[in-house]
Design a protein around this nucleic acid. Structure first.
Lengths: 185, 185
DNA sequence: GTCCGCATGTAAGTAGTTACATGATTCA
DNA sequence: TGAATCATGTAACTACTTACATGCGGAC
């Protein structure tokens, strides 16, 4: 989904400012399947206001820039609905720098491999804690709560695999030194 | 990793043509953490040849365009090594259209939700079969085999979750009709 | 007194995608 | 006969990232 559709998705859950939309890409329930920085969000909101997909209300604040709160319109909902209808979601293409590095574990130092794995383990543990908290907010089952569960399941599997294979990764590290590369030539 | 580094990674496993590199993004062991189309691969290879990161050998073929086989150089290996050294891999940001759609399951028809879930279940099953085959090619443990195992673990977890929650997703579908949106305003 | 959070935006750049262009072979 | 695979590449476009620009308030 492009940045416009993604913003509309956030606005479906309630009116929000550009700043708040970005926060929900960073922390909230959208954080594990959507992304976008200020540089894409603000222009998208401006354009969608012109196109009538959202309305914008300025809330004056003292000693702060006016907060522009955006709300999705009927046309916006139609746009979102159409985007989802026309989409047959393909594979989630993951561009993973971690997996790329681990793939070449044999050519790298055990220290570096340990460092990147430990960092990721810590990340997943922290993220899973956050998600568990987030889950307590749902009293009924909904698409939102089920998607959160999906995220938890995948993160847990990733964490488990890394914990279980940490030593194995470190053991293969350094097995192939650059010269091996030449031997293969 | 950018397209250049990713191509160098493929070439670390052996000389290949642009066409073959792309295939390994689509099918091979790189397919679940790297991507790139012809439009990015060919220019990248041309540029890297100029920069000395790869060498290019034309293999004449009858009745086909000459196959250009690229091979990584020492400078190429250094480039790859540096890219990995300088990188502290952050979170694997997933832009998932499936999760986006499922998040809004309540607003969509049960039929559509069933269709996208079933398509993804079939995809994971097929992919897991392929990956299991791929795994038989490894006789020793290496970064490559461990990363394959990682991919299998994550895909399996995704598949399991979808299978376990297929009915739940379908049950919430259609619970919120667009009017609810207005009620929230 | 410095950094983080709130709050908005623009401008320049890059990287990647999509579509086009060409053409033989092979399989159903 | 039509589609898929092999095989290369370019041109136009889009979409996003990064850096810049501004500035107050509050916490440490």
């Amino acid at each position: 989904m492009d940045i416009k559709t993604t913003c509309l998705g956030v606005l479906m859950l309630g009116a929000a400012s550009g700043y708040e939309i970005r926060k929900s890409f960073e922390e909230g329930p959208f954080s594990h399947f959507a992304e976008g920085g200020f540089g894409s969000i603000y222009p998208a909101l401006t354009k969608m206001t012109q196109e009538g997909l959202v309305t914008c209300t300025a809330h004056q604040q003292e000693k702060r820039p006016a907060k522009k709160v955006y709300q999705i319109t009927d046309a916006g909902w139609t746009h979102l609905e159409t985007a989802m209808r026309d989409k047959i979601p393909g594979e989630d293409k993951i561009k993973s720098d971690l997996l790329f590095m681990l793939f070449f574990a044999d050519w790298q130092s055990p220290e570096r491999i340990a460092r990147v794995i430990d960092a990721r383990i810590a990340f997943y543990q922290q993220k899973l804690d956050e998600m568990a908290d987030c889950g307590t907010q749902f009293d009924t089952i909904s698409g939102r709560s089920l998607v959160l569960g999906y995220g938890i399941a995948v993160f847990q599997a990733s964490l488990d695999y890394l914990v279980a294979n940490r030593e194995a990764f470190i053991e293969v590290a350094g097995q192939a030194q650059p010269p091996l590369l030449h031997a293969a030539e």
